[in-house]
Amino acid sequence: MIVAEQKPLKEIIAMTSPFKKLLIVGCNECVTVCHAGGRKEVEQLAAALAMAAQKDGRPLEIKEVTLERCCDPEYIEQVRPFIDQYEAVLSCACSVGTQYFADTYPTKWALPALNTSFMGGSLAQGIWAERCAGCGNCILHETGGICPIARCSKRMLNGPCGGSTGGHCEVNPDIPCGWQLIWDRLVALGRTPDYAKIMAAKDWNTSRDGGPRKIVREDLTI
């Protein structure tokens, strides 16, 4: 899923303070699961912003709504009947959702309440970690199922570097060395000879480096 966290409250207060009528929109998908922008967080944020305004003696009208999904046009449409009553949308969806509001309602401010951080999963209650960098050309079948791009701090395809120590990455002892993990998997799978193969320079064209990406499934388009 997409993992995000709420921006510092002060930053949100600063970006929303010019507005008197605010539509706060949450999303029922990833950001609900990672406790960053679901119904509950929307409610908390609305209460906090209301108090901030109350304290400063500035009028603020807030409407809270949480959509099923914010990365599909039909759900974004659901706010159309009342969006004109608000000056800005504060999006608690991931930054994809925020941009959907910007694209759909050209005259409304779309403000991000979250810092959208990575694609990952939860390790334990309250802890999430990155797993994929969306390079657009997956090589997990060659690396024992561990991604060297997302999990090696230098995204080396032929690691480990000389800084790998005791299973930790040189960048920070809290980061497991991605290449140690790959090696451990190759050992467990009985595939250590695979390590000898040099992985050629990657074609980053399928990654961000090729410009904003798009997938078209002709079989599904109407």
């Binding site: 108090m51 109350q54 304290k55 400063d56 003696g57 500035r58």
Partner: peptide, 11 residues
């Protein structure tokens, strides 16, 4: 609580 006070203070 400054929340209830704030409005008054500004007024």
């Amino acid at each position: 609580n400054p929340v209830k006070n704030g409005g008054a203070a500004h007024k």
